[in-house]
Simulated scan of single mutants.
Amino acid sequence: MAEKSSTHKEYVAGFLAGIATVVVGHPFDTVKVKLQKHNTEGHQIKYKNGLHCAARILKNEGVTGLYRGATSSFVGVAFESSLFFGMYSQMKQSLQGRLKSSGPDPLVIIPSAAYSGAAISFVLCPSELLKCRMQVQGTDSLIPNSVRYNGPIDCALRTIETEGVRGIFRGGVATLLRESLGGTVFFCVYEYVRHFMHSKLEAASHDHKSLTEFGTGVISGGLAGVAFWSAVLPLDVAKTIIQTDPDIRSTRNPFQVLHSVYRMAGIRGCYAGLGPTLLRAFPANAAAIATLEFAIKFLGIERE
């Protein structure tokens, strides 16, 4: 799939896709983070499942509780999405030109996806650290002497004050591994599903072309999102634990963290938050890709 476009338009389209992701997916993400934090530790707070967690948030905090931490998430995910899709598109175009490939090519998709995923991890790590710390401090944060933040800026300043600038990048290794591996899975599924659907629907009449494009974006994006999180959820569990651990001396090695979780909670602990994560993955990523495809068309980015 060859693409011809001005560089900045690809980044604008990705930015809009990121906003759509947060609007649709953040409530699910809040439930996921609380499950990962509280159901993998030894204190008294436990949730039966994602529905129980969501119900407790709504009862104690209302709908706003589900969007706790959304401010940093809007900023982080929007810019991350802009870089993610923009850098992927640029590198893919470059490799396609050299390899002269037509249709999805793993020699093009894999390095482009891994590169863009690794690059955005440096933007995503600080914003997710602030988001996660804000999410776990809700009314269920009943741990004695737990830190309370007034907002993401207060969280950032206090993190730097107590842990230094390095503290903002706590969980960086886990984020890098999650995004590079997950990005590869995401774009492989997205490109192949999109190519397959277009090949089957290319005979669709012009009157239904817009609807066909929208449906293709929803299905390819949704399936790619599910594949992403199915592949990397344990790394995300490790990242959440690392970023929300009040002990600044605790390990930042995601594999050591997962080993500790496995010893205490088994494989189920390594997949804490699986339910809300997968429930979020399809609609959030479907919204992202549908928005991306719409923005590409609106901005006049040509695609073959």
Rank of each mutant, 00 (worst) to 15 (best):
Lys239Asn: 07
Thr71Gln: 02
Phe122Leu: 13
Asn60Ser: 10
Gln243Thr: 08
Thr30Lys: 01
His8Cys: 08
Ser260Pro: 05
Ile296Trp: 00
Ala174Gly: 10
Gly221Leu: 00
Thr244His: 00
Thr21Lys: 00
Thr7Ser: 08
Trp229Ser: 02
Pro234Trp: 02
Glu179Met: 15
Phe28Leu: 02
Ile120Val: 15
Pro254Leu: 07
Arg166Pro: 09
His8Trp: 13
Ala54Met: 11
Ser116Ala: 15
His38Glu: 14
Phe15Gly: 01
Cys125Tyr: 02
Tyr271His: 08
Cys270Phe: 04
Arg98Glu: 14
Pro126Asn: 01
Leu292Trp: 01
Gly300Asn: 06
Gly183Lys: 10
His259Ala: 14
Asp236Trp: 02
Ser141Ile: 05
Thr184Ser: 09
Ala290Leu: 03
Cys155Trp: 02
Cys188Lys: 08
Gly65Arg: 03
Pro144Asp: 07
Phe28Thr: 03
Ile289Tyr: 00
Ser112Asn: 05
Tyr115Glu: 11
Pro126Arg: 00
Arg133Lys: 13
Val12Lys: 00
Glu61His: 04
Tyr47Trp: 14
Cys188Tyr: 07
Pro126Glu: 01
Pro27Ala: 06
Gly300Lys: 12
Gly171Tyr: 07
Pro111Lys: 06
Thr175Val: 14
Cys53Met: 09
Glu10Val: 00
Pro104Arg: 10
Ala55Glu: 15
Pro246Thr: 09
Gly97Ile: 10
Ile143Cys: 13
Ile160Ser: 13
Leu95Arg: 08
Leu107Trp: 13
Gly151Asn: 10
Arg280Thr: 05
Gly86Pro: 09
Gln256Phe: 08
Ala2His: 15
Ile248Thr: 06
Phe187Leu: 13
Gly65Ile: 02
Ser260Cys: 10
Ser112Met: 05
Ala265Val: 03
Lys34Asn: 13
Glu80Ala: 06
Ser6Cys: 11
Gly182Met: 06
Glu80Lys: 04
Gly65Lys: 02
Ala174Met: 05
Ser5His: 07
Met134Asp: 01
Ser89Glu: 09
Lys92Leu: 06
Arg178Gly: 15
Leu142Lys: 15
Phe186His: 13
Leu233Gln: 03
Leu235Tyr: 04
Ala114Asp: 07
Leu157Glu: 10
Ser210Ala: 12
Val31Cys: 05
Phe228Val: 02
Val75Gly: 00
Gly215Ile: 03
Ala231Tyr: 13
Phe186Lys: 04
Glu179Val: 09
Val257Arg: 11
Pro144Arg: 03
Ser89Lys: 04
Asn145Glu: 14
Val189Lys: 07
Cys132Ala: 10
Val22Lys: 00
His38Asn: 09
Gln36Phe: 11
Leu83Gln: 01
Pro152Leu: 04
Gly171Asn: 08
Glu293Arg: 09
Ile168Trp: 02
